[in-house]
Design a binder for these strands. Structure first.
Length: 293
DNA sequence: CACTTGACCTGTCCGC
DNA sequence: TGCGGACAGGTCAAGT
C-alpha cells in the first residue's frame, strides 16, 4: 500500500486504537518478516505513541532497552486491528470490514494485547518488515531519509539542490529518492507532476526555478489532499479497521490511462520512467519545455 | 559517483 | 481451461 498518506492514515488509527496497550504475545507466521533485537522481548512493553517517518511506521514503547517497533509496509503490507469481540463498530453499529476473518494466509505476524485485542500484520508479497530497535534515529533506514515533505525543512531550495545534484536523472526519479524527500512514492509522484504540468521524464537539471517552486507546492497540496481522503486503495491498502482509502476517486492520472485528462481532454498515457509505470497527460505535460518558462 | 537492472515474493490479468 | 509472461504501491544489491 504505502506511501506517506497511507502510512499516515494507519498511524492515526494506531494512535486511536492501540496507544497505551501492553503487548502480551507475539506469533510469527512468517519469521522473516520480523527482525528481533537480540535479548529483548517485546512482550510486556507498553505503547506510548505511534508516529511516522517517511513511509515507516514507528510504534514507540515505554520500556527500555527496546524503544520502538519500526514497520515498513512496502507494497502490500497491512496493519489491522481487531477488538476482543472481533466486531467493528462505527457510529455505534457493527459494520463489515473489507477483510474477512484473521489470521488469513497473508498474515505474517499477530500481536495480542493484555486487554484481549489484536493487531495483525498482513503482507501478501512478504516484502514488508517489522524491526524492534533501541535507537530510532541511528537506524540505517531512518538515518538516510530526507526531510518530511509536510515539515518546514522541506523547502523549494532543498528540491532545487536535489535537482542539481541529480541533474541527469528524470525528475520523477528525484521525487522517488527517499534521501531527497521522505514518503513520496509512485502514485503521488505522478499526481504532483501532473498538477505542476511537468513531464515525468524531464531531466531534473532542466527544470527552471519557477517549475521547481510550482512542483514543491504541488507535492504539498497532493499529499495533503491524499491524507484527507485516507490514502489510495486499489488492491491491498486498508486502514487499521480494514477499510479502503478514497483518494483514487480524485486522482487525476494515476491508473487513469486511456481516460481523458480532466484539464484538456487529451488521453492520459502510461509509460515507464525511473523503472516504474508512469501516468501523465502528453499535452499538459510536454517533454519539451514550453515558451512560458 | 550516478544511473539502471534484477532480486525479493505472491497474485492477477492478458494474450495465445 | 491452461500456461507463460508482464506487471503491481518499495527498496537493495549488484551491474554498467
Amino acid at each position: 500500500m504505502p506511501e506517506l498518506p497511507e502510512v499516515e492514515t494507519v498511524k492515526l488509527g494506531l494512535e486511536q486504537l492501540v496507544k497505551g496497550k501492553t503487548f502480551s504475545k507475539m506469533t510469527l507466521f512468517w519469521p522473516k518478516s520480523f527482525i528481533p533485537l537480540p535479548g529483548v522481548d517485546l512482550v510486556g512493553s507498553r505503547i506510548v505513541r505511534a508516529s511516522r517517518r517517511g513511509k515507516v511506521l514507528v510504534i514507540e514503547l515505554e520500556e527500555t532497552p527496546a524503544t520502538a517497533l519500526l514497520i515498513h509496509l512496502k507494497m502490500t503490507g497491512q496493519l489491522v486491528y481487531r477488538s476482543p469481540s472481533g466486531e467493528i463498530f462505527s457510529g455505534g453499529h457493527p459494520i463489515q470490514s473489507a477483510l474477512g476473518d484473521l489470521p488469513d494466509k497473508s498474515t505474517r505476524i499477530l500481536w495480542q494485547f493484555q486487554d484481549g485485542s489484536k493487531l495483525f500484520f498482513n503482507d501478501q508479497r512478504k516484502f514488508g518488515w517489522v524491526k524492534l530497535v533501541n535507537d530510532i534515529p541511528s537506524e540505517p533506514f531512518i538515518a538516510k531519509l530526507g526531510p518530511e515533505p509536510l515539515e518546514p525543512d522541506f523547502t523549494t531550495q532543498v528540491l532545487a539542490a536535489a535537482c542539481t545534484r541529480r541533474s541527469r536523472t528524470s525528475i520523477k526519479g528525484v521525487l522517488l529518492d527517499q534521501s531527497v524527500v521522505a514518503g513520496v512514492g509512485n502514485i503521488y509522484a505522478d499526481e504532483s507532476l501532473y498538477l505542476a504540468k511537468i513531464h515525468p521524464a524531464r531531466l531534473a537539471g532542466t527544470l527552471s526555478d519557477t517549475e521547481i517552486k510550482v512542483l514543491h507546492k504541488s507535492i504539498l497540496f497532493v499529499l495533503g489532499e491524499a491524507i484527507k481522503y485516507g490514502g489510495t486503495s486499489f488492491t491491498n491498502f486498508v486502514n487499521i479497521l480494514g477499510f479502503r482509502g478514497n483518494y483514487l476517486e480524485i486522482a487525476k492520472v494515476f491508473r487513469k490511462e486511456n481516460q481523458p485528462c480532466v484539464r484538456c481532454g487529451s488521453i492520459i498515457k502510461k509509460i515507464r520512467v525511473a523503472g516504474r509505470g508512469t501516468h501523465f497527460c502528453p499535452v499538459c505535460q510536454p517533454l519539451k519545455r514550453g515558451k512560458h518558462t
